[in-house]
Design a protein around this nucleic acid. Structure first.
Lengths: 337, 337
DNA sequence: CTGAAAGCGCTTACAG
DNA sequence: CTGAAAGCGCTTACAG
């Protein structure tokens, strides 16, 4: 079975390649009867246009890239799912890249996107990301960028985030109300905006209750499972250990649960825990875990829809959209009095 | 800043486009000095070759597609992670498509891949998949296919799976040893090979212990969270309910936990549960969950490596590789006597 | 060692 | 309404 291309269709139909191409693109220039003949044969021979040829010619790709720190996380998996759902409807293809929280990876990935391979980029920054030259160059190359969750404050790109400051404030308040005196904030590396917002919410909530903000209770983790576990266990083994943990991501909460099991610390009696999380088993763990749950799937959909708005009508892009979605605080047993 | 293409480099360097292209591809035809001049300028101007042009010309894409039923599942997220890790090293791009367990989706996705957009496909079949014409056509188009986990018995493509029959046999045996008399097998829709292997393992284990296989204890779920929950709750509310549940995927186990909570059924006293699962919180749920854990990340790596072996040396492809990885049975409290 | 030329398979402005 | 021709940006067989 030879390859079916426009030339083949054209010769079988005694038409020119130009006419066949236009017919398949439903051009007003072509009469209905011809269009039908063309479509019929194209279907019969299962013609599939060569995307590289048409992308090259048209200068667009109907493809977007998604760059995330990791795939195997409930949050990012749900976001990606939401992105796919929207992209699929638009008949766009989705290239996914995991940076593993590594800045070098992120830079080289983005550099490889500069050749027009994609029309747009949805990105959640890796933990280590600091500079923005690589993203600026991409923008200059005419590729639309939308940040989600872990956004950059330095660029004027559109963003989709959740109300991290407010959620963190409420979560801290919740711990205080349930009698926590020494609340440890388990954080990711510091230059992530999301982390800064959450930390600020935590700090402001403490201040508003006239609690002293103790720097030793802001625990920077490193985003490596084993090391994070050791850091957490270390904190819980201190002479004057915390009686409340506010974890900025779910894997730190899991590390805390594991450390408590190993150290025989009772949750919530000796230690209360709340965390940002999209774990489907939050209500099933022992004890059930209080969470702030982000609308991850929705975030993916919103971010992708926003990206398409930008791709499809660039001329309107003088204003920069910032969408903020609400997270949900669900109190369970891990923070019970 | 205009676009930097070969022509631009060539004119700045007083060379021909052909020479520049060859220099960048490190051709033996070009002298070292010229190569260096070219590379220097290319770096300086941040030249990125247009992939559509070069793919069109060369007839390959350095891109693979991953088609999975869903992204937001620990298992598939881990597999995808493993795939990415290998693809990244080979400097390949990865297009991801989620079929949502829908056959139509799977067909149309695969049809769109027939145009040479990718060099290879890694696929785990959707629950509903039955026919194989769409995959056969893709093969005829010269695109290499590797199946993983949910494989097809009908094609002669290479596969990467786990030892599902054996694992299921052992899991059933484990339940019997812990005194279960009526073990319900919660299954996915039936035409998935993985499901058939797991079911056969279950049946054979029962037979080997001289237990009757009661068809009513093979419970087909439908792969929709709410409906599955209702099916499970219904089973547990029967007059003569099961005292053991063997779930073929983790979401059915989660449904079971939820149903037990609602119906006040005590695990493991009244009901024991074991499931195939990659949940990071299996040891933290209440009670901790006995699992058969598949090496998901490794499966992704193996499948991707196998695909590259096929892509890179098709001439050797007269034998079909089938890789089987070992799963791990981890007994926890949910199956304790 | 370098370059002119053809061609990958499309799309589209233009002519008829 | 149809078609001839140019061109998207590369790569490569061939000539010199």
């Amino acid at each position: 079975m030879d390859k079916v291309d426009l030339r083949k269709l054209a010769s079988e139909l005694n038409l020119s390649v130009a006419t066949v191409s236009k017919a398949l693109r439903d051009s007003y220039e072509i009469k209905e009867e011809t269009k039908q003949r063309v479509r019929l044969l194209a279907d019969k021979l299962n013609y599939q246009p060569n995307l590289f040829a048409s992308n090259l010619r048209q200068g667009k790709s109907r493809t977007i890239a998604v760059v995330i720190p990791e795939i195997a996380s409930n949050f990012f998996a749900l976001v990606t799912d939401g992105i796919q759902a929207v992209a699929e409807k638009k008949r766009y293809h989705v290239l996914t890249y995991a940076t593993r929280g590594n800045y070098e990876n992120e830079m080289s990935t983005i550099k490889h996107l500069e050749n027009g391979r994609v029309d747009g980029l949805l990105i959640s920054l890796s933990c280590e990301t600091q500079g923005h030259q690589h993203l600026n160059r991409l923008k200059e190359a005419g590729i639309e960028i939308v940040f989600f969750d872990r956004v950059s404050q330095l660029s004027d790109c559109p963003t989709v985030t959740t109300d991290d400051y407010t959620s963190a404030y409420k979560a801290t308040e919740h711990l205080i109300q349930n009698k926590c005196k020494r609340i440890a904030f388990l954080s990711l590396p510091d230059h992530i905006s999301i982390n800064q917002n959450r930390k600020q919410g935590y700090i402001d909530a403490l201040k508003s209750k006239n609690k002293v903000v103790d720097n030793r209770l802001i625990i920077p983790c490193v985003n490596e499972p084993e090391k994070d576990y050791l850091i957490v266990r270390d904190v819980l083994s201190r002479k004057n250990p915390p009686d409340g943990i506010f974890a900025v991501v779910e894997k730190l909460a899991i590390a805390t649960y594991n450390a408590c099991n190993d150290l025989k610390i009772k949750i919530p009696r000796q230690l209360k825990i709340i965390t940002f999380s999209n774990l489907p088993t939050a209500s099933l763990v022992n004890p059930s875990m209080s969470t702030i749950t982000q609308p991850a799937f929705e975030m993916g959909m919103e971010a992708c829809a926003l990206l398409f708005r930008r791709i499809e009508k660039k001329y309107l892009s003088n204003k920069t959209e910032h969408i903020v979605l609400k997270s949900n605080l669900i109190a369970r047993k891990s923070t019970a009095k």
